[in-house]
């Protein structure tokens, strides 16, 4: 079943939509959740929340790219759950490492940005990712959107760990400069 047909099922309020979503994108969403939470039970719950959110969002929403739409929902839910876990001092090791890497792109500030500024930052990041070679862009997204580990990336891209690390390091440095130039308060 193609994505448009699945979206149509949501719009028709057919419960088969969830079943078809799970069949096609269950593993994809589970992987994103598990990469962030590193826990099977939490990842399963996150997956169920994803289906519920998708059910609530369609209609009125009609995504152009269902996989990215579901991926973003899963990621947001997993991130919120992660923050909750962190408050309970149950921080996943991989996630803590990933966030510490991103610290290199920003300077210390406790101010919470509003969603408009976040959208501008996201636009800047998107523009940057369009400007770099495709493989670099793919690597950055696989690391910081899908939260894959360095080892996983090494296997998927068939690069050494050190090469992956150095490519990401260079990109973080470039992104930091671009964010500063764009006047993003960081």
């Amino acid at each position: 079943m193609n994505d448009n047909e699945i979206i149509e099922l949501y719009w028709n309020r057919s419960e088969i939509a969830v079943k078809k979503t799970a069949e096609k994108y269950g593993n994809y969403c589970y992987t994103i959740a598990h990469n962030i939470l590193c826990n099977p039970e939490d990842s399963d719950e996150c997956l169920n929340d994803t289906y519920l959110n998708a059910w609530n969002a369609m209609p009125p929403h009609r995504p152009n790219m269902l996989s990215a739409f579901l991926g973003k929902i899963t990621r947001n839910i997993a991130l919120n759950r992660y923050k909750h876990q962190k408050r309970k001092k149950r921080c996943g090791e991989q996630m803590a490492m990933l966030l510490s890497e991103l610290d290199e792109c920003i300077e210390c500030s406790n101010r919470v940005e509003d969603e408009i500024e976040n959208a501008l930052v996201a636009r800047t990041i998107s523009d940057y990712l369009y400007s770099v070679p495709k493989i670099n862009s793919a690597l950055f997204i696989q690391r910081y959107f899908f939260c894959n580990s360095i080892d996983d990336l090494s296997k998927r891209f068939k690069f050494s760990n050190s090469k992956i690390t150095s490519m990401l390091y260079r990109m973080r440095g470039e992104l930091k400069i671009i964010l500063s130039k764009e006047g993003v308060e960081i």
């Binding site: 990215a68 973003k72 966030l99 997204i141």
Partner: peptide, 14 residues
């Protein structure tokens, strides 16, 4: 927050 922003990048890139 930056991690959250990366979650808002274009669908096409993902």
């Amino acid at each position: 927050t930056l991690f959250h922003c990366i979650g808002l990048i274009d669908d096409a890139l993902i």
